[in-house]
C-alpha cells in the first residue's frame, strides 16, 4: 500500500476530527463541547490546505482563502458560544448541558 502525502494529511485531519467529535459527544461541560467543535473546524481547515497543497490542480490560493474565511467564522462562533455559556452560567449557576434545559432564566 502506497500512501501519498495527501493521504497522510487526510488521515491526520480525520483523526483530529474524530477526537473533537468524541469530545463533543461525551463531555457534559458546555465549554468542552465548544472546544470539540473548534477541533472539528480545524480538521476541516487541514483538509482544505492539504488539497490546496497536494491536489491535482493547485489553483492560485483558493485553499488559503477558504481557510482564512473559515478561521474568521470560527472566531465569531467561539465568541458567541462562550457568551452563551456565560449567560447560561449567570442564570443557572452551572454550565452542565443536562441541566440547561430551558431558555428563560
Amino acid at each position: 500500500m502506497n500512501l501519498s502525502p495527501l493521504h497522510l494529511c487526510l488521515l491526520f485531519s480525520s483523526a483530529l476530527f474524530c477526537v473533537g467529535l468524541i469530545g463533543a459527544l461525551s463531555r457534559g461541560n458546555s465549554i468542552l463541547v465548544l472546544l470539540g467543535v473548534e477541533l472539528m473546524l480545524n480538521a476541516g481547515n487541514i483538509n482544505l490546505i492539504a488539497f490546496w497543497r497536494f491536489g491535482p490542480a493547485p489553483a492560485e490560493g483558493t485553499g488559503v482563502l477558504f481557510v482564512l474565511f473559515a478561521i474568521a467564522i470560527a472566531a465569531a462562533e467561539a465568541a458567541v458560544g462562550l457568551a452563551l455559556v456565560i449567560a447560561v452560567h449567570r442564570h443557572q449557576r452551572n454550565i452542565r448541558l443536562q441541566e440547561a434545559n430551558h431558555l428563560r432564566g
Binding site: L11, C18, V19, L25
Partner: peptide, 25 residues
C-alpha cells in the same frame, strides 16, 4: 455511545481515504 460514534466515523473515513486513488500534483 460517543466512542462508538467517533470510532465508526473514523473507520469510515480511514477506509474511504485509503481506498480512494487520489491524484496528486
Amino acid at each position: 455511545p460517543a466512542l462508538i460514534a467517533g470510532g465508526s466515523v473514523l473507520g469510515v473515513l480511514v477506509g474511504a481515504i485509503v481506498g480512494s486513488p487520489l491524484r496528486t500534483a
